[in-house]
Design a protein around this nucleic acid. Structure first.
Length: 591
RNA sequence: GGUCCGGUAGCUCAGCUGGAUAGAGCAUCAGCCUUCUAAGCUGAGGGUCAUUGGUUCGAAUCCAAUCCGGAUCACCA
């Protein structure tokens, strides 16, 4: 059991015995004691004063003395300053924690809880390559999936590919018009980038035609709606829906190029999926489900034949789910997919990793699921994350201000290469080992950079400054792991010797932090927030770094000290590795 | 206009279920490698926590109003 929980329970116990009334965990707070005071954990007494009708000094004295007497194996000493009751936890407790956990590779991992959850993430369109925003999504999705697994869930990673619609038709039209049969193979361009180029070409041509229309005296709206190339794209979409062979063949071919490109990128990121869903399949299912919903009075039909749901009561207005011509809209496929997932997988929860620009859409989807009576409707969770912006504002593909995913990955690996060569610490590595190391460090820097910020908040990426390798970064943490591993290779831990003795301040700081890992994972799980973990791992690494500089491990004052420090080191390395893996980041043995 | 989110050091971010003197990194400055990996360590400077009022023993944190920025409110996806 975690120390905070232990303190909580024993304080409640003592309070009830002393004052003969019920107390709850929410009646008082337990914090880590501030560095400037003596102690490890602090019970804040203020909130208990009214209920007990006592002065803080007296109350603190009562609780403190009772615990020192009843549980000396946990509470070594205490002091009361103002309304703060500071406990020093017995060395025995920390030594015991270390002995039991320092060799465990995945400390605090939970037993299976029998619950099944799907994490839907990535969900790209197939008309252009991935950019930095997608990376935030992918890293978040992966990390949340790992955190859920660690917390005992069975996890399925799902991806809905938006493979049909006007966007891909635009690329297709442009390819027909301008490519002269060029392919990724003939040009040597990665498939997703290749198709993206034609999406850009479409927009260029479209803009040109709109301007021509304006020059001919058309008003803006007419010029925009009637540009010939746009009409062609819309026409192509109709042909696609009608199942036109030629269009479908081209569609398959171009999507295929995109998938080949995506696969390369996913592989570099170490990202994969257990279930792939394609909009070209799910949109039809969505229509069916809506039809069934009409019969159940979840949806209603208007005179013109369009189908709606009334969410006025929920404050979301009326929402269209099927057009008057019977074709599906964006949300229709999500309705179908939500049902399909339940039917096929019987999931208990579904986590949608989707940008905060779709908050309204996701609220509507959840309400629809509730109205349809989907068993897990209440457990649909929108992991809403903020956009990645540049110093000048949002990334816009039309203005060429997107940070391409493949480019940034390459850049990070190159920086890793340059820095590693400058430091010259791994001269005996083979070429393959070096490539692997650059990859681990470069991608690690990128992932950590995107995951260390609270997902809910938008974040700014400055390409000028790029991503640092010093301080609060992935490489700093990886470096500390490698450094510990180096020590552990040179110094053996004698498993038969129980560590003993007292802790110096930095040793204590380390062990207290190590003990907090489990609660931090739990917090990241509850809040759906990998950043909480990232911050924790950094704090742990930083503390280790100070400890390392302050005290010698290999040449400790006594053999007991050496044993204790080696165990602290091993536990730190294991915790760093487990934590980083929960962020989807690998850590090297040497760097 | 309705709804929602945000505003903390020069920059990027923690802290926000109220608690002790508001913390990190980067950048700036000063020290530290003949000892376990210096991608490091130690120290210094840097803040009207957007503003104003309220709640209370106590507010960056909760409430209200205001100012600023953003998202969204499509028979687009």
């Amino acid at each position: 059991m975690h120390i905070v929980k232990i303190i909580q329970e024993s304080v409640i116990n003592v309070l009830e015995k002393l004052y003969h009334q019920p107390f709850h965990a929410t009646d008082f707070q337990i914090n880590q004691t501030k560095a400037e005071f003596e102690g490890d954990y602090t019970v804040v007494l203020f909130s208990l004063l009214k209920k007990t009708k006592l002065a803080p000094a007296k109350l603190g004295e009562d609780i403190g003395q009772a615990l020192l007497v009843s549980q000396p194996q946990i509470y070594a000493s205490c002091n009361i300053i103002n309304g703060f009751l500071n406990f020093t936890i017995a060395d025995e407790f920390w030594l015991d924690y270390l002995t039991k956990n320092s060799s465990i590779a995945k400390p605090g991992k939970q037993e299976a809880n029998g619950k099944k959850v799907m994490v839907e993430y990535a969900s790209p369109n197939t008309n252009k390559p991935l950019h930095l925003g997608h990376l935030r999504n992918i890293f978040l999705g992966w990390s949340i999936a790992e955190i859920l697994k660690y917390s005992g869930y069975q996890v399925l990673k799902g991806c809905i590919v938006n493979d049909r619609g006007i966007h891909i038709c635009k690329s297709m039209i442009a390819w027909q018009k301008f490519a002269n049969g060029a392919t990724p193979q003939s040009t040597g361009i990665k498939g997703d980038h290749f198709v993206g180029e034609y999406y850009v070409k479409f927009n260029d041509e479209y803009k040109k035609q709109v301007n021509e229309g304006l020059a001919k005296g058309l008003d803006k709206e007419t010029a925009e709606k009637n540009a010939p190339i746009l009409l062609e794209a819309q026409d192509m979409l109709l042909q696609w829906e009608a199942g036109d062979t030629e269009v479908k063949t081209l569609w398959n071919k171009m999507n295929g190029w995109v998938y080949e490109g995506f696969d390369v990128t996913y592989k570099k990121l170490g990202s994969d999926f257990d279930r792939m869903y394609y909009e070209s399949n799910t949109y039809l299912l969505g229509k069916e489900i809506v039809q069934q919903g009409i019969n159940k009075n979840v949806f209603f039909k208007k005179e013109d034949g369009s189908v709606w749901i009334d969410l006025e009561k929920e404050g979301l207005g009326e929402k269209l789910v099927l057009r008057k011509d019977g074709t599906s809209v964006y949300i229709t496929q999500d309705i179908g997919l939500a049902q399909q997932r339940y039917d096929e997988e019987k999931i208990d929860r579904c986590i949608y990793v989707i940008g905060d620009e779709q908050n309204y859409h996701m609220k509507v989807l959840q309400e629809i699921a509730k109205h349809m009576g989907l068993p897990y409707a209440d457990d649909i969770y929108h992991l809403s994350y903020g956009m990645v912006e540049l110093p000048g504002g949002r990334m816009k593909s039309r203005e060429g201000t997107v940070v391409d995913a493949d480019d940034i990955i390459d850049e990070m690996e190159n920086v890793a290469r340059t820095k590693t060569e400058e430091l010259g610490k791994v001269k005996d590595f083979t070429t393959a080992e070096l490539e692997n190391l650059y990859h681990i460090i470069g991608v690690g820097a990128l992932k950590f950079f995107l995951l260390r910020v609270d997902p809910k908040k938008k974040m700014i990426f400055n390409p000028e400054e790029s991503i640092d390798f010093h301080g609060f970064t992935g490489p700093f943490i990886q470096f500390n792991h490698a450094r510990i591993k180096s020590i552990l290779r040179k110094n053996e831990i004698d498993e038969t010797v129980k560590p003993s003795g007292s802790f110096l301040p930095l040793e204590k700081e380390l062990v207290v932090l190590l003990e907090r890992f489990g609660t931090t994972v739990a917090q990241a799980n509850e809040e759906m927030n990998p950043a909480a973990l990232a911050i924790y791992i950094y704090q742990l690494s930083k503390t280790f770094s100070s400890f390392y500089n302050e005290h010698s491990i290999a040449c400790a004052e006594t053999t007991e000290k050496k044993q204790l420090r080696l165990m602290l080191s091993r536990a730190t390395a294991n915790t760093i590795k487990a934590g980083m893996n929960l962020l989807g980041i690998d850590v090297p043995e040497r760097m």
